[in-house]
């Protein structure tokens, strides 16, 4: 009797997630048929594609030892970017806390570790998990606003028909200078004028101030937004480098609520600033102490 009860409980625990996923999937499928305007990509979108780097491309034949993979990226190896020698040299100067080239952040130089702005395209990766995998799009008559939960940052994409200025006319901007237009049902954003202090992603991929970036947004159904990006930066990359296909779900979609049973929207606008003074305190007291850089005060 006791064994039967135990087995029953075990089976229930094992099968419950599958049941919940099926139920969520059916609900999502039902909602995905809801009507939508393909030229309206407004909404709070949360990332569902994994890994959170610019390219997210797996190498077919992994050739890096496991100890070079990050704590969370263990066993995941990525295809390399089409670097120029200068690009590879720039990559080597960047010491990330994630990925195949992970170092303890105490000895790294990820701009995030000092609360520097992530910039574009890194903000678009929605790399910071939990409630801040989201960004919000608001479209007005002459511009698109994109709000990022991390650092409570935002960028403007002009849609009033203006052309991009000359790069030489721009000072380096953390989020670049962006204009957008529609090509069929695809919203195309072209940007220049980026600050080279930012990384493309948390793996430390670099860019110059002459990088040109094109983002292509397409609403696949009521609940799903697709983003692909292509950067052109001849000094660091021998050819245009395409991102992987990033997918986002509309907030409130039943596919993934967080936590279970509570709509994601309740977690919106937590004003997640990275405060330099608090970050410094944490780095001194926890991050660096744990890496042997100093003692806990």
């Amino acid at each position: 009797m006791r064994i039967t009860l135990l087995l029953g409980t075990l089976l229930t625990v094992m099968l419950a997630p599958a049941f919940l996923q099926t139920a969520a999937g059916q609900a999502a499928k039902a909602q995905s048929t809801a009507p939508f305007d393909p030229h309206d990509i407004s909404g709070v979108w949360y990332r569902t594609s994994p890994i959170q780097t610019f390219s997210n491309v797996y190498n077919v034949q992994p050739d890096l030892p496991p100890n070079l993979a990050g704590a969370r990226g263990r066993g995941q190896v990525f295809a390399e970017a089409p670097f120029t020698p200068a690009g590879r040299a720039a990559l080597e100067k960047n010491k990330p806390g994630y990925g195949p080239r992970v170092v303890p952040p105490a000895f790294g130089n990820d701009p995030m570790g000092t609360c520097d702005p992530l910039g574009i395209p890194r903000n678009l990766n929605a790399e910071v998990g939990s409630s801040h995998t989201t960004w919000q799009i608001v479209m007005t008559a002459d511009r698109m606003f994109q709000y990022f939960q991390w650092h409570h940052d935002y960028r403007v994409v002009w849609t009033d028909g203006r052309s991009l200025p000359k790069t030489d006319d721009l000072d380096a901007l953390w989020n670049g200078y962006s204009v957008g237009h529609w090509e069929g049902n695809t919203f195309v954003v072209d940007s220049i004028g980026f600050n080279p202090k930012t990384w493309l992603d948390k793996f430390g991929y670099p860019h110059t101030e002459n990088m040109k970036l094109q983002e292509r947004y397409r609403r696949l159904d009521h609940d799903t937004l697709e983003l692909t990006m292509t950067l052109t930066d001849p000094e660091y990359y021998t050819k245009p480098w395409e991102s992987d296909r990033k997918l986002f779900k509309l907030n409130g979609s039943p596919i993934r609520e967080f936590p279970v049973g509570e709509p994601f929207i309740k977690n919106w606008d937590q004003q997640v600033y990275c405060v330099p003074s608090e970050e410094y305190h944490f780095n001194q007291g926890v991050r660096d102490s744990g890496a042997g850089k100093n003692s806990v005060r």
Binding site: A71, R72, G97, V103, P105, G113, G290
Partner: peptide, 15 residues
């Protein structure tokens, strides 16, 4: 289920 800091110190720990 490791709880990992966003950029804190994942590589520091013996999980």
């Amino acid at each position: 289920l490791p709880i990992a800091a966003h950029h804190g110190s994942n590589p520091n720990y013996a999980w």
